[in-house]
Design a protein around this nucleic acid. Sequence first.
DNA 1: ATACTCTCTGGGAGCGCTCCTAGGAAAAGA
DNA 2: TCTTTTCCTAGGAGCGCTCCCAGAGAGTAT
Lengths: 342, 342
Amino acid sequence: MSRRLNLEEIGRRAGVSRSTVSRVVNGEPNVSPQTKKRVESVVAETGFRPHAGARSLASNSTGVLGLVIPSAVATLFDDPYFGRLILGITGATNEIQMTLNLFLFGDQADDRSIIPRVVAPGLLDGVIVTATTMGNPLIEYLRGADMPFVVIGRPDESASVFSVDVDNRGGARTAALHLSGLGRKRPALIAAPSNTTAGIDRRSGFVEGVAAAGLSLDGRIREGDWTENSGRKAAEELLADRPDAVFAASDRMAVGAVRAITEAGLSCPDDVAVVSFDGLLHPDLASPRLTSIAQPVREVGERAVRLLKSVIDGTATIPESVVYPTELVVRESCGSELVEVS
Amino acid sequence: MSRRLNLEEIGRRAGVSRSTVSRVVNGEPNVSPQTKKRVESVVAETGFRPHAGARSLASNSTGVLGLVIPSAVATLFDDPYFGRLILGITGATNEIQMTLNLFLFGDQADDRSIIPRVVAPGLLDGVIVTATTMGNPLIEYLRGADMPFVVIGRPDESASVFSVDVDNRGGARTAALHLSGLGRKRPALIAAPSNTTAGIDRRSGFVEGVAAAGLSLDGRIREGDWTENSGRKAAEELLADRPDAVFAASDRMAVGAVRAITEAGLSCPDDVAVVSFDGLLHPDLASPRLTSIAQPVREVGERAVRLLKSVIDGTATIPESVVYPTELVVRESCGSELVEVS
DNA sequence: ATACTCTCTGGGAGCGCTCCTAGGAAAAGA
DNA sequence: TCTTTTCCTAGGAGCGCTCCCAGAGAGTAT
């Protein structure tokens, strides 16, 4: 009966052909103003929308980007990091009139069933891969399926992929120098998982900064898993060695560390100063407010989309790595004298 | 040259027809074991994946669900609520072998450009609409495009849509009764935006509970916008009227309220008890730890997907509203005597 | 022997679009 | 006036899949 609207039908009603309607719908040139107007009014009154699948089949492009967040981190989705990242990515995606497909891997088992769908032809024009752990197989799959992709973070293999990252190493180094500059002598580190490049870089940056300041960690290193609880556990252990400063490689681990310090009857920042990485938590959420190495997550997401778009368009062909700087945001937890702003 | 693999080509290599390959790929019956095996091995060694667009065109189904988060809330994406919700939704989506398309509206301007893409044929099989404000036009569009959809939250119009919600009203009522049961006599309310059904329901539930306890709010009501800052502002104003209990309609507003209470030189919970709604914040993030009306966000997301799936399949035809109960989680901020668990 | 059923396989038709080519009409030049 | 160029439009072909029907072959009942 009322069969679906299609180009042919719209053309019939406007007294033109399929092709002309297609040109109007896609904003192509070489259509006379009056024809265009007539077609547009028919489109408007019928509410016609071209069929995405047919378009994908005929043009071999879908207008859809994929965002892949692998299994290791799905449980960490509470982290404000991902919300902010998605906000940046969707914002940029909307801007270029595309839509976003979200692939969140729940566990390893999902991987096998999801990867094929990610690389399936006719579904995605390109993929953003985030939070890669070392040796993530997905990248090889994408390469094999010659699907355009961009990695957020520093990929483990020796480059030759497009990537967007923040200066984890430099940021962590800054944290060390800042703490040292405040007169702290016994720094400690709550590191992020060492199977992630961010974890590795933040660790090596901090270690490097500590050395540059003429100090030493003396084994005051524990590894957490990004979460509050792991930060708390790590801090409890570290406190036995009486550190006067702690750098936690994420906001959430820092919150746990502060909690451990307080519960041990010590004061933060008086007895132990704390600096975190991320700078994403609302300041009021922690007390004392956290001094952080802030990373521009939203910008990273936006940039990844734009970069991916140019890979898809063929504008970008030589793999490049974009690295965003971090910024030290001084609040209360490091014990720095704050300049009052009236 | 190397043209794309398709059913025909796989069939050629396995010595069968297009149709047979299709049946094998889709796990349909009536294929002999040896034929099936032969086709499967060709599929495996070629890495063949059917073209999603072609499939969509021919079968009129895409295997993709949409999740729509309208403009009003995009800026609130920091809220752990959405992360948790997405986790539930993607989990359930993976389980039924579908993928998720995320539509995050940045601002009102986006709406016009995104809505058409949401209802475009051949892209989505169904849509989950979340965080609806009153009078959201999207629902009408979806109905007009006869696109299956499920609303998360209580839709404003008089039902006749499928929806999944939590018992906002009952939860808020419980909060009032709990505070009253602890001997508090001067309750105050930091309400959520009254253009959302959740805001309305939590407000009316709390008001109702206060009345049921024989108490009165006496105008101690302020409306926030879900954020820490708005909760803080609201609490600052409310403190002038010396409340001894505050119910904040979200975790984040509660955090702001506690901050305001503390900065006013008062003690939480001794001077002012606080109960929040959501129960999503990691307990260590707030001090004192927040007593909350916890809502099962993840379950809501999962249920919405399953419900949507049955609408798509035609299993569910009569609109139904699923309502999940909330749970009072007692921690420190309400001043309740905690039973020690050894 | 015939008829009937059931399982398995092949191929036509068609989904709605884009791309391309051809041709008509109008504008510009000879 | 006729030709050439430019602009606009129409329709064929084809993208890769699903759906459906027809038919071959094997097995069972009459």
